[in-house]
Design a binder for these strands. Structure first.
Length: 194
DNA sequence: GTTCTAGAAC
DNA sequence: GTTCTAGAAC
C-alpha cells in the first residue's frame, strides 16, 4: 500500500487569475469604449454590462470614491451633478426611469443606477435582482442626497434589514400581481409594456 | 457582480 | 422528469 502525494504542480491558483477580482469590474468598464456612452470632467456614464431593463446606465464618479458609505457633505455638489447627468440622459427617452443607489452595493466605485422601469431583460434573473430595484434596498438619488444633507453620511444598513429586503416575496411593482416564480414575473412584466 | 449546479419544488 | 432556486466560488 502506498500513499498518493501531490507534487506541487496541481495547485497553480496564481496562474488562473492575473487581474483584480470581480468587485473591480466597474472600474475596468470605465475604460471599455463599447460601454462608455458619455463623460465630463467628474463623471463617466456607462451602459450596465448586464442590463436589468430595456435601458440601464450607471453614472460613475471619476474620483475614487469607493461607494455611498464614503460620502460626506463635501460630495454634495458631485451628487447633485450626477443626478443632473441622469435626468439629462433620461430625457432622451420616452420611458419612465428609476434613479438611485443600492443600499449595499456589490461593486466598487460610487455609481448611480439609471434604469427604465420596464425591467424587461434577459439579465434579470433572480429575486435578488428584482428586490434590489423594487424595494427600499433601492435608495433614490433624492433620498440619498437628503440623507447626506441632513446627517452628513449614510447610515449602514443592518445585516438583518438587508436580508429581509432581499428576501421580500416577489410582487409586481406596477400592480398587485404576486408571481410564484421569477419566470412567472418576467412573463407578467411583458403585459405592462406599452 | 456572475457562473455553475445540487437538490428542492413542482 | 423538468423547472427553479440558492449557495459556493481557494
Amino acid at each position: 500500500m502506498s500513499k498518493i502525494h501531490f507534487n506541487g504542480i496541481s495547485k497553480a491558483k496564481d496562474a488562473v487569475k492575473p487581474k483584480g477580482n470581480w468587485s473591480q469590474g466597474l472600474v475596468a468598464s470605465m475604460n471599455d469604449p463599447d460601454l462608455v456612452v458619455d463623460q465630463d470632467s467628474v463623471t463617466i456614464t456607462i451602459k450596465d454590462k448586464y442590463p436589468k431593463a430595456k435601458h440601464h446606465f450607471l453614472i460613475m464618479s471619476k474620483e475614487n470614491i469607493p461607494g455611498i458609505m464614503s460620502l460626506n457633505k463635501e460630495n454634495l455638489k458631485l451628487l447633485h451633478h450626477m443626478k443632473s447627468v441622469a435626468d439629462k440622459l433620461c430625457s432622451k427617452f420616452d420611458d419612465k426611469f428609476k434613479i438611485g443607489y443600492h443600499s449595499v452595493p456589490s461593486m466598487q466605485r460610487l455609481h448611480l443606477h439609471v434604469i427604465s422601469d420596464d425591467f424587461v431583460s434577459p439579465c434579470l434573473k433572480t429575486k435578488v435582482h428584482w428586490n434590489s430595484f423594487t424595494t427600499t434596498f433601492f435608495m433614490t438619488s433624492d433620498d440619498l442626497i437628503r440623507a447626506i444633507d441632513d446627517t452628513g453620511s449614510i447610515s449602514k444598513m443592518s445585516k438583518q434589514v438587508h436580508k429581509e429586503l432581499i428576501n421580500t416575496p416577489l410582487k409586481c411593482h406596477k400592480c398587485n400581481f404576486v408571481p410564484k416564480t421569477m419566470p412567472n414575473l418576467k412573463e407578467h412584466l411583458l403585459s405592462h409594456i406599452k
